[in-house]
Every structure is written in structure tokens, then in C-alpha cells.
Design a binder for these strands. Structure first.
Lengths: 110, 110
DNA sequence: CCACTATTTCGCCAATCCGCCAAACAGAAA
DNA sequence: TTTCTGTTTGGCGGATTGGCGAAATAGTGG
């Protein structure tokens, strides 16, 4: 097994680890609906500003989201669309962009 | 937001968290090639028996793998095939079952 | 320049996770 | 029964993570 395989696995693990927190998953679900500024993400989240900011930096470090300054605000957007696809594959209710397909009933992952 | 959405998000987060560790990711990659007994997984892993067993129990609790007793051995298999699909989507080298498609070159995740 | 808003970083503490060792447990064989 | 092999579980030290409030930073307006 090459050492690049190990490095790559670590990077992938970082992606999963970043998604392995309900608050960050909530943020990603929201971002599936399009760009959001930090203040909007704070509104939908339970924690405070610093907490949300930290979650966002974790997601950014993993390459899952990208940020961009718009005047006084910072906008975040999903940088890894296949994350959304995978969430749909897992099925379940909390989906922000999968109402079109008839699937996604209960929280059963197939 | 319904409380079932929160519960469901926690379960999903548990799936991601379980995959958010290089050793467990390595195990999942191996299981993409088919059933493996614990002793085989210990061989390909860096840690000892107890460590591998604990990783397996985490994966099982998240619903990612299933186990079955075969005589004296316990066999584990992938219970969530879409995990493999998602890994392919992330691209990169350490793939155990994606040599067919021409994609998956470097460790770049699109 | 100062004040204000939006956001990030810093320090702290509690909680969780990781890997190891030893012990426990289950099943097959003697 | 005892013994052996394969696997899981309990406990410990050390490292990492999560969330909060306070402080720092960046950009805008007066």
C-alpha cells in the first residue's frame, strides 16, 4: 500500500469526520439550497456565533464548503455536490433539496 | 423542524463519524471486496485485535457493516453499499472496487 | 479619527475518542 | 471437564473535540 494511499485516506477521513456532527450536517443541508451568509446559518443553528464559525472552518478545512466575501458578509457555499447525493442515498427526512424524487420517506438508510 | 428530523440527523452524523477515522475507512475499503473475517481485517490493519474489534463495533452500531458467525470466525460485510459509491465519487487512489471505471486518478475530490 | 457590524480567533473546561493491556466470553476439540 | 483459538469488553492514560464568552480582526459609515 503506497503512502499516497494513506495520505488520501486521511483526507477522506477528514471529510467524514467533518460531516460527523449534527450541527455541521444541518449547515450542509441548508447549503444545499444555495449560498448562505454566516448570519443566516447562525439563525438556523442552536449554538452561538463562535460555535457556528468554528463548524464552518472545520467544513472549509475539509474542502466541503467554500467561502466568499460579499461586502460586509461572508457567504458559504457547498463545494462538494456529491455530499448531497450521498445524503439522498441515505434517505430520511432532513433533506433540503430532494423533494423532487418520490423516495426519501422515513429515516431508513438503504 | 420536527424532532424526527433531529433524531435522523443524529443517526446520519453517527454514520459519518464512524467513517471519519482512517482505520475504519481502511476496513470499509477492504469490505468492498466482499466478506472478511476479523482475523483478515486485523492483518491489514495497523492496530491490535482489540482495536480492530472496537472499530468494527463502531461501524456496526452505525449500521455500516453487518456480522455473521461462521463456525469459529466472525465475518463482516458491508451493509450500506452506497458508501462505496460515495467513496468513488470522492475519487482518489485507495479504492478496492472501482478499477472498472476509467476515473479515480489522483486524490482529488470533485 | 471613532464607532458600529459581521466574523474569526483565543482560553478555558467538560466530554468524548484512541490505542493498548488484561480479562472475559464463546465455540470446538481433546 | 480442560484447553485452545477467535473475538469482544473493561479500564486506564493521553490526545482531541465541542461550546461558551471575551477579545481580536476586517470592513463600512460618520
Amino acid at each position: 500500500m503506497s503512502s499516497t494511499a494513506i495520505t488520501c485516506r486521511k483526507r477522506r477521513a477528514a471529510i467524514f469526520k467533518a460531516l460527523g456532527h449534527p450541527a455541521r450536517l444541518r449547515i450542509v443541508e441548508e447549503l444545499r439550497g444555495g449560498e448562505r451568509c454566516v448570519c443566516e446559518l447562525v439563525d438556523i443553528s442552536a449554538g452561538g456565533w463562535s460555535t457556528v464559525s468554528r463548524h464552518l472552518s472545520v467544513l472549509k478545512a475539509a474542502g466541503i464548503v467554500e467561502d466568499e466575501k460579499h461586502g460586509l458578509h461572508v457567504h458559504y457555499r457547498l463545494a462538494l455536490p456529491c455530499v448531497g447525493t450521498f445524503l439522498d442515498c441515505l434517505g430520511g427526512e432532513p433533506a433540503s433539496a430532494s423533494k423532487a424524487s418520490g423516495a426519501a420517506k422515513s429515516c431508513k438508510h438503504a
